[in-house]
C-alpha cells in the first residue's frame, strides 16, 4: 500500500514537470503549428546558465530568475531568426530546423560545459516528508515542483482568458488571417507565444536538474514524455497539457515501480498508442466543427 502511495506521489511530481514542458509544446503548436523538437534542449541551455551562475556563488533565486529570463529571450530569438523565415514553406522545414537546433544546442552545450554529468543543488530538501509516523517519498522539493508549475499554469490561464494580450493570442492561434484583418500584429503574438513556451520549458529544466544526471542531454527523455503528455491532452489545450502530464507521470511511475524503470520509455509508447487509437484528437481538443 505504501509503495502504491509513494509511486503515486512520485508520479504527480514528475507529471507536473512533463506538464510544464507539454505546455510549452502546446503553446508553440497553437501559435505556429510546429512541434518544437528543441523545446527540451532550449530548457537545458537556460538551466546551464543558472548552474554556471550558481557555481560562481550567485544566490539560488537570482540564478533561477536569470534562467527563466534567458528562456523567455531564447524563445523569442529562435522564433524571430529561425522560425519566421519558414512561413509558407513546406511543413517538413520546421521539423528539420527545430531538430537541427536540438542537435546544435546540445553540441554547443557539450563543447562549453562538457558532456560529463554532474550534480545540481536544489532549492529545498529532497528527503521525504514525515506524515504522522510514516515517511513518504514526497519532499519539500516536490512541493515546490507542484506549487511552481501550478502557479505558472494559473498565470498562463489568467493571461489567456482575462487579458487583451491573451485574446490576441487565442485569436491568432485560431484564425491568423482574420486576426490581421482586425489589426492584430500577429507576428509579435507569435514571438510572444514562443517566448512563453520557452519559459515554461525553462521552469521544467530547472526543476528536473537537481534530481537527474545533469548533462547536455538530460532533457531528452523528459521531452519524449512531455510529447506523450501533450498528445494525450490534444496538443491544443493548456488544460490538456496539465492532465496529460499528470496521467503520463502516474502511469510511468507505476510502470517503473512495478515492472522496472527500464520499461518507462516503452510505457510512454504504449500510452501514445492507446490514446491515439481510442481518441486520435487527444482527450481535450474540441471537435473541429460544431453542429448547431
Amino acid at each position: 500500500m505504501s509503495h502504491f502511495v509513494n509511486l503515486s506521489l512520485n508520479g504527480i511530481s514528475s507529471g507536473m514537470i512533463y506538464a510544464s514542458v507539454a505546455l510549452g509544446l502546446v503553446l508553440v503548436w497553437r501559435a505556429t503549428r510546429i512541434i518544437n523538437f528543441a523545446q527540451g534542449s532550449m530548457a537545458m541551455f537556460s538551466t546551464y546558465m543558472a548552474v554556471t551562475l550558481l557555481d560562481r556563488n550567485l544566490g539560488y533565486w537570482e540564478a533561477f530568475a536569470v534562467a527563466l529570463a534567458v528562456g523567455l529571450a531564447l524563445g523569442a530569438v529562435v522564433e524571430r531568426t529561425l522560425i519566421r523565415p519558414l512561413q509558407g514553406k513546406p511543413e517538413l522545414n520546421p521539423v528539420i530546423v527545430t531538430f537541427g537546433l536540438f542537435i546544435l544546442l546540445e553540441g554547443v552545450a557539450g563543447a562549453i560545459f562538457g558532456v560529463r554529468s554532474r550534480g545540481v543543488p536544489a532549492a529545498f530538501s529532497q528527503s521525504g516528508l514525515t506524515i504522522g509516523h510514516h515517511r513518504v517519498s514526497f519532499s519539500h522539493f516536490d512541493l515546490f515542483v507542484l506549487g511552481s508549475v501550478l502557479a505558472l499554469m494559473v498565470l498562463m490561464l489568467v493571461l489567456f482568458r482575462a487579458t487583451d494580450v491573451g485574446l490576441r493570442m487565442r485569436a491568432s492561434a485560431f484564425a491568423p488571417e482574420m486576426s490581421r484583418l482586425v489589426g492584430v500584429r500577429v507576428g509579435r503574438v507569435l514571438t510572444l507565444g514562443w517566448a512563453l513556451a520557452s519559459l515554461a520549458g525553462s521552469l521544467a529544466g530547472l526543476l528536473v536538474a537537481p534530481r537527474s544526471a545533469f548533462s547536455p542531454n538530460y532533457m531528452d527523455l523528459i521531452l519524449v514524455y512531455a510529447f506523450t503528455a501533450a498528445v494525450v491532452g490534444g496538443l491544443e489545450s493548456p488544460v490538456g497539457a496539465l492532465v496529460g502530464g499528470l496521467l503520463t507521470g502516474l502511469v510511468l511511475s507505476f510502470v517503473g515501480g512495478y515492472l522496472g524503470s527500464s520499461l518507462e520509455p516503452l510505457g510512454a509508447a504504449v500510452i501514445l498508442i492507446l490514446v491515439l487509437s481510442a481518441r486520435p484528437e487527444g482527450l481535450f481538443s474540441r471537435p473541429a466543427a460544431r453542429q448547431v
Binding site: 485574446l167 490576441r168 485560431f174 482586425v182 489589426g183
Partner: peptide, 16 residues
C-alpha cells in the same frame, strides 16, 4: 472566429 465568444470577437475588432 468560431472558437471565441461573441463579445471576444467584438472586443477584438477595437483592440488596436
Amino acid at each position: 472566429i468560431d472558437q471565441l465568444t461573441v463579445e471576444e470577437n467584438l472586443r477584438l475588432g477595437a483592440l488596436w
